[in-house]
Design a protein around this nucleic acid. Structure first.
Lengths: 215, 215
DNA sequence: TCCGTATTCTAAGATTCCTTAGAATATCAG
DNA sequence: CTGATATTCTAAGGAATCTTAGAATACGGA
């Protein structure tokens, strides 16, 4: 691995900024923040050609934001440590604060559903009047989820509506703050007469807020 | 499995990363973090051609990291708010943590002088056995400094050695963690028999640590 | 009014980065 | 060993960004 110790200080600092300066890489980092994945899974989840995915991962690795391990013929990537995850959260909060265009893009992409904050949900976890639904894939659910949440991937939701109590308020969440799955679930639930809201920040927001996890 | 929306969001997010991806811009931000400055002062302090300075400032402004005000024929730039300053500190801490090359670059540029941490200095401020010396310019000093510090710009230090008590420990600081001025001051002081150490992180580290200021 | 200073805008060459095709590597199964 | 799969490496065209010259703007002062 090439090291550049004699490069001036600000050039070194900029290496982190450069790693965070491409939409493709930011998207990969968000996907990786959920759990470890293979290169192919990453390419699929982020909708990026495989070869490009691999090339971007090399750059992220050079900046020490991700590490990898090989298992047989596959290579699994993950964020180097929780500090990377925390820093990504801070970057997103900072950008959200600062860029009205970002807020607009999020609103127009997700719709203007008022959500439940992680803090509020944490307080209501024990309340039987609140039912938490994890609409991510079963694999994502298995890797870690909000305590007490039940797993109902969005594609299965229509068939499992009867399992949900009509009188409870349903809180649905998916991957992260920019994930469109939980707003869709909420719309579907409301159409069928349920009281439902999305979880602000999704699973990532929950984890970044240092809330408890269950596996 | 298209769990992340198609795109504009990550493009927006990347705007912040892009702003932080150039050594030139990072240097300007560090200079601005000390205090408001005109374009020409910035160009001088960061050792960058004037036209380039102006062009980079436009980009920083587009990302809402800096704002400007006009006063007569000059334009003064400053960081938009303290959150920008805090975020820059976090970026630097994160990069420092992560890149061994950055630590090497800092060491080779500043020398391996053990410094005083901001926390330690804060505890010893009332102690008369500790003398704090601000070796930045008189203008920088006037804009804000460590309480009780005396202003002795590096260029004047040799002529003012007699004003400093031999029995005290002297803590010298300059602008930021990458500023070379205070290590030079410390070397000069030690050559003349003083016990001296630099302040880790300089004035920026002090301020980012939420320590008290004096003007 | 016109002039001088500080800064920005426009445009273009130089450079760096992104993306992807094709070849190479690593591992496992047979 | 050979073949199959997953990933990386190398190289190159194209896109985006950096830098800076020259023209333009904004302001204060004579």
């Amino acid at each position: 691995m090439a090291q550049f110790p004699e490069e001036p200080i600000y050039e070194q600092l900029a290496r982190v900024g450069k790693a965070l300066s491409s939409p493709v890489r930011l998207r990969l980092l968000d996907v990786l923040d959920q759990r470890e994945r293979t290169v192919e899974e990453l390419a699929q989840a982020a909708e990026i050609p495989l070869k490009n995915t691999s090339a971007q991962l090399q750059q992220l690795r050079a900046a020490h934001l991700v590490t990898s391990r090989r298992e047989g013929t596959r290579v699994y990537y993950r964020l180097t440590d929780e500090r990377v995850s925390r820093f990504l959260g801070e970057l997103q909060g900072f950008a959200h604060d600062r860029l009205a265009d970002l807020r607009d893009a999020v609103r127009s992409r997700l719709g203007a559903l008022e959500g439940v904050t992680a803090d509020e949900l944490a307080r209501r976890l024990a309340d039987p009047g609140t039912v938490v639904v994890d609409v991510r894939s079963a694999t994502d659910y298995a890797a870690g989820h909000v305590p007490g949440a039940i797993s109902v991937p969005l594609s299965d939701l229509r068939d499992h509506l009867d399992d949900l109590p009509k009188e409870a308020e349903i809180v649905a969440y998916c991957g992260g703050p920019y994930c469109v799955v939980s707003p869709e679930a909420v719309r579907l639930l409301r159409e069928h007469g349920y009281a439902a809201r999305p979880l602000d920040g999704g699973f990532l927001g929950w984890r970044r807020g240092e809330k408890p996890l269950e596996r």
